[in-house]
Simulated assay, not measured.
Amino acid sequence: MGKNELAQVLDVVYRAILRETVSFNYYYRASNDPSLPDGVRGLLGKLAEEERGHRKILLKEYTAIQKGWSGRGQHSSEEGSISYSIPEDPEFLSLPAPVQLDVEAVSLPSRLVGGDHILGRVAESGEGSGGGLFLILYDAMGHGIETTRFNSAAASILGEYLDATSSADAETEILSPSRAVTRLNADFSGQFQGSGVFLTLVAVYIDPVGGVLKYSIAGHEPPLIIRSDGTMESLYYTQLLIGIDQERRYMEYSVPFTQGDRLCVFSDGILEARNSAGEFYGRHRLNRVLAGCSERSAKEIVNRILADLREFCGDETLEDEVSVAVVGCCGT
């Protein structure tokens, strides 16, 4: 296959991925519309899962085409693979947090090795007191130690970007999720374009004083918000994965986030964990765990998720990283 033909083939698959992403957004959002009958919402949920599956198939094809026709070698599927169980006493990450927010996170089996990464940064206000929280969770597609290199590259890009501040006003602007994600995508794509390496991520900026949460999602599982009254909402509008289109500009959306609300961000390693019967843990089970957590601390919620995941898996080990972060708003 010539270079021109290869480019055209990749463009077709790329556009198909875009269409699947748009379709997933539509079905998933509609499946959470309380005005629709349960049967209709159930059908829409199934259609959303179909679109999610189609997108994964297309991504695998995109990767296979790039690697198979670019002269790059395939990574071994066995070497450096992981296999572990959820510990009863996991080590929590040390993340910064303004006084108005309760923040806890875990990344398993290791915070240094693998494709998952959670990063937090507190924006200082003009008066020098804690301001908003920038939080990002990303997942380098793949499994095992081989993804560590991609994780490290993304962390380096984000670190350099986030350190480029000279004032409180400039820092708040730089911590815009859409700007951070657009910059990460441009630099990461420049390093890995054509190698079939992608990231999914969620980036949020929470302003507890203003009572708002801004976010950008790139191909990642939609996070969940547990409202103070116990109802749950998903963050919609997932966009294209990081690493496909270097010129893409990412959009930013916002929702209210006030006292008593809790945000839960997680990697797909949780949803795709299997038990001995080959069943997936899935989003519905996670929703059941989170129901009734409106009065629990961030650490309690993380522990409840991990305990239920451990119970579900039983003797089966996990073969993908598991990361989860919970942020609770304690007030202004």
Rank of each mutant, 00 (worst) to 15 (best):
A123P: 04
F150P: 04
G142L: 06
F150D: 09
A123L: 10
L133F: 04
A140M: 08
L158Q: 07
A153G: 08
L158W: 02
E146K: 12
S152C: 05
G115T: 09
L135F: 07
L137W: 01
G130P: 04
A123R: 00
I157Y: 05
D139E: 13
G114C: 03
T148P: 05
G128D: 15
A123Q: 13
E146P: 03
V122F: 04
E127M: 06
L135A: 08
V122M: 07
E160G: 14
L137A: 08
G115Y: 01
Y138L: 15
A140W: 01
H143Q: 14
L158V: 13
T147F: 03
G132Q: 07
R149S: 08
L133I: 08
G128Q: 11
G132R: 08
H117V: 09
G130Y: 01
D116M: 02
F150Y: 15
L158M: 15
A154I: 04
Y138D: 11
I157S: 02
F150A: 15
D116V: 08
S152W: 06
S125M: 12
S152T: 15
M141P: 03
Y138R: 06
D116K: 02
R121T: 11
L158F: 06
E160C: 02
S125I: 03
A123G: 10
F134C: 07
I145K: 09
G131H: 05
A155W: 02
D139C: 09
H143S: 14
H117S: 15
D116G: 08
E160A: 08
L137R: 00
A154M: 05
I118K: 01
G132T: 07
E146A: 08
D116F: 01
I136D: 03
